[in-house]
Design a protein around this nucleic acid. Structure first.
Lengths: 143, 143
DNA sequence: CTTCTTGCAAACCATTTGCATCATT
DNA sequence: AATGATGCAAATGGTTTGCAAGAAG
């Protein structure tokens, strides 16, 4: 939370936007969570504890956070978006178990290297990517 | 179209489903298209030419095709799904240009190898994956 | 003939938006 | 004060669904 709010504040200042209570709350909450969460969860969490913000504000703030690069919007194939902090945490991808819904996070250096080479080869300037693997986790593939 | 319909027919038979005109039309149309297309496009194409099917039928058939493994549902970050034939075509991934919207298809053997190794290492049974790279294509990164 | 499909329109659901009111700078 | 943010509820837009009427086996 320390430099995180600082970063967000700077981002907001640059575009003459204001650092409000609602925005602070959303930011704190998402950085409090260990993994990815959906907008609705975030809204419910906030409502349960400290601040009572509207869903609209949650979505609007999430957009800002994604745009600022501090939060990553991920699609785990549930028909709606999930969000996770992008800073202070190694870049990683997801393996989603289609049976139990478990999400395994992973990262792979070789793969990242391949990705970079690939983009260079195609003259493509890589700014982000989405990579999810679907299948069955160790538990579920046994059955 | 020859063995394609055959395959679909078999799939349907197995679950006591019927091979109807509407389903045939959707199948043919998606296999006629060179790349990915959205449900709405498919619906418009069909309506323009031969068969007049409802959007509901398009979506219902698409679900069946995806479930049968003949069609792949892809998310190009447009807020709605795209579909593309999975058979008779090399497996590939997408690079999406955030500026002009162009979609470059690619495939990379090394990467696929890494992916397989990775899944094995994690005891994860890989059935599908989604991989999209976002950024700027050669044209747009110049500016 | 029975069962499964279709079309239609209404329902859904996550997300967005218009607008009057409120908070931050 | 002035500008931007919020909440609300209504709008959106892709997708799903209930049901009566039609096709396929």
């Amino acid at each position: 939370m320390p430099s995180t709010i600082e970063d967000f504040s700077q981002y907001l200042n640059k575009r003459q936007l204001k650092l409000t209570q609602g925005r602070k709350a959303v930011l704190q909450e998402i950085f409090l969570q260990p993994g990815h969460l959906e907008a609705e969860d975030l809204w419910r969490s906030l409502r349960r504890k400290k601040r009572r913000v509207s869903r609209a504000t949650v979505y609007r703030t999430l957009d800002l956070l994604v745009d600022s690069g501090m939060v990553r919007k991920v699609d785990l194939g549930h028909g709606h978006s999930h969000y996770e902090k992008a800073l202070l945490q190694a870049h990683h991808e997801h393996m989603v178990c289609l049976e139990c819904g478990k999400v395994i996070e992973f990262s792979d250096k070789e793969m990242e290297g391949d990705l970079d080479k690939l983009c260079k080869k195609s003259g493509f300037e890589h700014t982000a990517h989405r990579f999810e693997i679907f299948g069955y986790c160790g538990e579920c593939s046994k059955s």
